[in-house]
Each structure stands twice: as structure tokens, then as C-alpha cells.
Design a protein around this nucleic acid. Structure first.
Lengths: 116, 116
DNA sequence: CAGATCGTTTGACAGTCGTCATACTAGAGC
DNA sequence: GCTCTAGTATGACGACTGTCAAACGATCTG
């Protein structure tokens, strides 16, 4: 029953696309959440604050089409996971480095935390 | 005599800006060239093929303002170098990972190399 | 000093991106 | 079978980006 949404195969992952997918604050935060748990029950209300559902869906699609995530559809539930192995195989060290950088973003993008 | 063009200090380097600056095929190729030699005599005619001078200048500015490169101006000569130390200190492993990924791009972005 | 050169800056333009609102689709539960 | 629900798809809109062209500024050379 579990269907998988369309995604590029490992060798089809293009570096520039990965970089572009990762060059967005919202998607970086999504990446952080995805990195925490393996699979993630999708779209909890507080997955991201202040982002419209359709916008979120759009970002998930960008991540998936870039080859960064895999989306499994079971019945009405969507599960998204990072494609760690594929990513690490194609671009060693990239994912970890990006996750590290994204973590600092979590701090700096709070509006009030700026220029204190 | 050597002036330096404006650039963010090490702590002012924002991760998202770095990612955005690196999410462009032209700039990734520039990064590769910059990674080769420390300093690089600027704008050799064949630095990049098929890119206008002003476009190149624009890309160098993006890289510089993101904190990725440092530009020194000596007389009429511009020298650009990677800010390896600052980058490695702020985002360990990122630069190397990106350089690795950019290297594959060198192969795949040749128009004729695609889908053969 | 005048001319040439090299890179920058500015302006314009087309294409892309992120966002939201709305409509749509497919599974779940009664 | 009908309704409810969760996420997707589409359309629209403003903002940003990459590109080129042309003008500008500063420096070296005669």
C-alpha cells in the first residue's frame, strides 16, 4: 500500500539543485526537524510556525525533487525522511556540514535575537 | 596601497547567505578556480566562458558580501581569495563538501555530456 | 596631461521563487 | 455510499535574481 512520491534516483541528484533546495531558511529548518527523527509524521500543526500548508507542501516538494528527502504515502499519512545514505554517498560531508550551519540559524533567525 | 573591498567580519557571516551564494552554477565554478590557487589574478579572459564582465563582477560581489571571498585591490589589479579560515571556523566541513560537489558539476554541466 | 584599460556601477528586462488563497483528490470512518 | 479530513495542485502576485548593455571611475602608460 505504501506508495512513494516521485524522486530522482541517487545518481540523478544534481549538486546545484541540492544547494538551491538548501538555500532557504524555511527548508533549512525543515531539514533540522527531519534530521532529528528518522521518519516524521507529517505536518503536525507546529511543524513550522507561520507558514501556510500549501507553502509547506511546496517546500517538501522542492526537497524531494532535489533528492534530499523521500516521501512515503501510507493511506492518508505522509512520512518524510532524509536520504542520508544517498546524499552522503554523492556528496560526502555536505549534509552534516549543512545541518551544523542550519543549527546556528535556529538561533539567529529569531527576530528579537537580532542586533541586541 | 592595498585596499580591501567591503566584506562581513567572520561572525557576521550568515549561513543562509553563504548557501544562497553557493547555490549558483557560475559561482560554484568560480569557487573551484579560487580553491585552486590561493590568490588569483583577476578576470583572466578565460576565467569563465560566456559570461559578461559585469555579470562576473556581480557574482564576485555576491561571494564577497556573503563572506566567502576577500578581494584586495592593488593599484589596478584585483586579487580574490577564499576566506577558508573564517568559513571553516564558522561552518566546519562545509567548504570542502561544497568543493567536492562542485567538482562533479564541472563534468555534468557540459551541455553535450548530458543524457548520453 | 591625455589616452587607454580594467573592473565597477547603474539601469533594464526576463525568468524564477516564495507565499498565499482556493479548488481538488483520495483515503478513513460512520 | 456519504462526509470529513489531510495534503496536493493550480493560479496569482510581489519580490528577487542573473544577465547584458552602457556609462563611469580610477589607474597605468606614453
Amino acid at each position: 500500500m505504501a506508495r512513494y512520491l516521485a524522486e530522482p534516483d541517487a545518481v540523478g541528484i544534481k549538486f546545484v539543485e541540492v544547494m538551491r533546495a538548501l538555500a532557504d531558511p524555511v527548508r533549512l529548518r525543515m531539514l533540522l526537524v527531519l534530521a532529528d527523527g528518522e521518519y516524521h509524521p507529517c505536518w503536525p500543526e507546529e511543524f513550522l510556525v507561520g507558514v501556510h500548508k500549501s507553502t509547506l507542501s511546496h517546500h517538501f516538494r522542492v526537497l524531494r525533487e532535489a533528492g534530499i528527502t523521500r516521501t512515503r504515502l501510507e493511506g492518508r499519512n505522509y512520512f518524510v525522511q532524509l536520504r542520508r545514505e544517498d546524499l552522503d554517498a554523492r556528496f560526502p560531508g555536505l549534509l552534516d556540514a549543512v545541518l551544523g550551519g542550519a543549527r546556528e540559524l535556529d538561533v539567529t533567525d529569531a527576530p528579537d535575537a537580532a542586533d541586541v
